[in-house]
Design a protein around this nucleic acid. Sequence first.
DNA 1: AAGTGGTCTAGACCACTAA
DNA 2: TAGTGGTCTAGACCACTTT
Lengths: 253, 253
Amino acid sequence: MAEQTLTARIADAIRRDIASGAAPPGSTLPSEEGLVAQFKTSRGTVRRALAVLVNEGLVGSRAGRGYYVRQFERLDWRPGKFEHLLHRRDGPEAGADAWAAEVLAQGRQPSQEVDVSTARPPAAVADRLKLDTESDIVVVRKRLRYVDEVPYQIADSYYPQDVAEGTAIMIPGDVTVPGGLMSAAGHRQSRYFDEIFVRMPSPEEAFRLDLTAGTPVAEYVRTGFNGAGRPVRVIITISPGDRYRIIMEFDAE
Amino acid sequence: MAEQTLTARIADAIRRDIASGAAPPGSTLPSEEGLVAQFKTSRGTVRRALAVLVNEGLVGSRAGRGYYVRQFERLDWRPGKFEHLLHRRDGPEAGADAWAAEVLAQGRQPSQEVDVSTARPPAAVADRLKLDTESDIVVVRKRLRYVDEVPYQIADSYYPQDVAEGTAIMIPGDVTVPGGLMSAAGHRQSRYFDEIFVRMPSPEEAFRLDLTAGTPVAEYVRTGFNGAGRPVRVIITISPGDRYRIIMEFDAE
DNA sequence: AAGTGGTCTAGACCACTAA
DNA sequence: TAGTGGTCTAGACCACTTT
């Protein structure tokens, strides 16, 4: 048998309690001191064992309170439901963009902070829009999306300057236009190229999204092309793994 | 300004070196002892700082060697390219399933270990196949997929007993059938419902896939329905975030 | 043999939360 | 005020990698 460290044995014991239901989601775990007594070890070892579980995303902690079993209530997100295909003219979802409409449909309250600016394109954006990092300029709409006042998603859109200029895209704040900003700007997108990266968040993303340790994110990069095959928009979305289930549907031809 | 702990300052300093290119991917970081001297602190603090970076997925370590900056070379995976749409009859990709064909197309060598068994359906599978955890039985094809001898993906398929019985699905080992196992078994799937969860791996998954700490996974659950709307297969795929870029393409109607 | 990370101990002081 | 987690120290011994 493989020898196991004491740290691993403590983590396993707690993990089993969580898996078996003995420690249900939301419940408080024994205190560090209690575990020290139970396993006859030092506090450092107990803390290392708990750190393992925190980094696995199973457990969270709050100073002065204790450790608890995390629970996940994920919102559904269907990136394949496009703005320009929405035809809602009445009811609570009227005027909402694709994301907000979906949140509303699940009985939750969406809102977003929007910041519009111009800047040099980051390398990842320049690549996809076929622009130059040094000489070109993009219009950026940075959005932080909330569900019931909790931050749920970073969604930053990048437009080549000539695409955005003089259109509703430049309007600061939370603008909604029927069919979406791109349609209104006269840039119909005929193809989307979507990439999904799964990774740990940067400290800045973790701060903005108020993530607890052990929460990975999906980085969803959508590049939209117009009829001539020119990339006209890049959207980079950062979605915490503990808050989303991403759904795709396919009908076989 | 917010006070920062010494641990955070050390982690920030190293993170900056990585971001700026001063410590390029693959390079070795200063030793723990070196950082102790540089920051005039104890080894415990240095180790905590490095643990932060490891859990962010930026840094890895090997006993006796040192800490290094991780690099990512992701393989492309297009879950929307379906087996039954492949029509390759010659060349290296002939006879390969959808995943293997894509790996081959990227100049890499795919292989897989397959294990076929029958069992009670796990709750997640029973839900999606509309079966009962207690009374029903599923046929399970557990696959561990390798690229150039490195484990790259867990892909477990679950079939209701009556669907799999007496078909090629029951054949042990790495079977490939033109058009895929389901078509050959006479169960054409007309709709797919795909769910993506982003989370940290379980210890068992981390072991099987040989994951380093700080590597999240995408859990990709595909439910296939036949023409009558009955779910006939569930595939659960576990893909490490450091090895895959998931790609989706959409043509606007 | 020397250098590196991996595990563990036993103490200290601090900040936050709850009763 | 008592209990909780958060940070930090200074030492110890071990296993692995390289020279």
